[in-house]
Design a protein around this nucleic acid. Structure first.
Lengths: 135, 135
DNA sequence: GCGAGTTTGACAATCGTTCTCAACCGCGGT
DNA sequence: ACCGCGGTTGAGAACGATTGTCAAACTCGC
C-alpha cells in the first residue's frame, strides 16, 4: 500500500465530480441506474463523465454509502442508504421502497453457509409486494 | 394474434435443439450461464446456436421449468428447478450449489411485509460464498 | 408429398459496464 | 505561492452478455 494514513483509508479526494454525484444521489430516494444518475447530474448543470459516475458509485457502494442492486434486467441500480446492512421491501407497482433489517436473517445465512463449509459470504435478499396505496 | 388454437397455447414444437437444451440441463445441478450451457451442448456432440439456447431457456423459464437468477455480475444463470420453494447457496468460484430451506426466513419476510401493509409477497434470497473446495 | 406457420442460425446490433492512458488536479512539503 | 507526486478524470475504444434480423430449414396436419 502507498497509504501513509494510519487508518489505512485509501485517501478519497473530495473532487467536484464526487460532490456532483453525491448531490445527485441526495436528489432522489428510489433506485436509479448509472445512466439516469448521469443525466441527473447534467441537468444540475454539472458535467461528469459516465465512467466517473460508475467509478464513484462503485466506490460509494464499497464504502457502504450507497446500496446497489440489480433490477430484473440485470442492470445495476443505486440509491443512497443508511449505513447499516439491510434489505428492501419494494412495491412492484409503484416502486416505493422500505428498508428493513433482519438480524435473524443475517445470522441464518452465515450459519447455513458455515454449516456447508462456505466462506467469504454475501447474500442478496429483496422482498417484492404490493404496497398499501397500490392495492 | 395469429393463433387459431382454441387452447391458445403457443404451440411449442419438440425440436432437436430444444431436446439438446433439455438434455444439457439434465446434466448438471448447479447454476450455469447460457454460454456454459451452450458449450455443454457442443461437448455432447450437438450443435445449437447460442441465440437458440437463449430463446429456449427463456421459454423454459417462462414455463417455470427452469430457475433463472443473476449472479453478482448481473449475468443470467439457469438450472432446472425442483418444485419446492427454496433458496441457493452458490459458490462464486465454481458454481457449486446447495439448495437450502429456511422456514424462518419465509416467516420473517411475510411478517415484515404485512407489518408494512404490503401484500401479494414474493422474495428473492441467494447466498454467495466460496465453497470448501475452492478455498 | 405439400403448404403454412415455426424455429433456427450466423451475424449484426444493442446496451450496460469497464478499460486505457494522457491530461488534470488536490494536497502536502518547501 | 510554487512544486511535484500520486490519485482522478474523460473521451472513446473495448468488452461481454443478450437480443434482433431474416432467409433457409424444419414440423405438423392434411
Amino acid at each position: 500500500m502507498t497509504s501513509t494514513d494510519p487508518t489505512s483509508r485509501p485517501s478519497v479526494r473530495p473532487t467536484r465530480q464526487r460532490r456532483a454525484v453525491a448531490a445527485a444521489l441526495a436528489g432522489f430516494d428510489d433506485f436509479r441506474s448509472a445512466q439516469e444518475i448521469h443525466d441527473l447530474i447534467s441537468q444540475q448543470g454539472e458535467s461528469v463523465g459516465l465512467a466517473t459516475v460508475y467509478r464513484t458509485l462503485a466506490t460509494l457502494a464499497d464504502a457502504g454509502e450507497v446500496d446497489m442492486l440489480r433490477n430484473e434486467d440485470g442492470e445495476a441500480i443505486w440509491r443512497s442508504c443508511s449505513d447499516t446492512h439491510h434489505h428492501h421491501l419494494v412495491c412492484r407497482t409503484c416502486g416505493a421502497t422500505v428498508e428493513v433489517e433482519g438480524p435473524a436473517v443475517e445470522r441464518w445465512t452465515s450459519a447455513i453457509a458455515s454449516e456447508h463449509g462456505y466462506g467469504d459470504i454475501s447474500h442478496t435478499l429483496e422482498i417484492f409486494g404490493t404496497c398499501p396505496a397500490c392495492r
